[in-house]
């Protein structure tokens, strides 16, 4: 299996690796996948008072494509509103990274991760305001 230049670049130099305090109300955390399936992504977003994603961090256990998909996604979501970030489609990620068919699930996982992070942020803030 050969990887595209873009996958290799993200894999060799992953962007925005790290962790944020998951108990912080302005932080949304999405963790998707399962160790038994060979990939787990943790994507975190920090959202400001305008509902814009200020920062994003990830850590991923998985193949090169999974790491690249999550790295790319953290770049994309920064500066986007929650609504815009939630509208990112896995096909866009797959296309940007030129993922081979057997690796499409990595982009699906990344889409699920950002959705989960947004959901986490929203549920946290729904409870605090309630």
């Amino acid at each position: 299996m050969s990887y595209s230049e873009k996958v290799l670049d993200h894999y060799e130099n992953p962007r925005n690796v790290g962790a944020m305090d998951k108990d912080d109300a302005s932080v949304g955390t999405g963790m998707v996948g399962a160790p038994a399936c060979g990939d787990v992504m943790r994507l975190q977003i920090k959202v400001n008072e305008h509902g814009v994603i200020e920062d994003a961090k990830f850590k991923t256990y998985g193949c090169g494509s999974a790491i690249a998909s999550s790295s790319l996604l953290t770049e994309w979501v920064k500066g986007k509103t929650l609504e815009e970030a939630g509208a990112i489609k896995n096909t866009e990620i797959a296309e940007e990274l030129a993922l081979p068919p057997v690796k499409i699930h990595c982009s699906v996982l990344a889409e699920s991760a950002i959705k989960a992070a947004i959901e986490d942020y929203q549920s946290k803030n729904a409870t605090t305001t309630a």
Binding site: P14, V17, A19, M31, P35, V40, M41, R42, K59, T60, Y61, I67
Partner: peptide, 8 residues
């Protein structure tokens, strides 16, 4: 492992 959420 630095990249791995499981390691964390």
């Amino acid at each position: 492992r630095e990249l791995s959420p499981l390691w964390d």
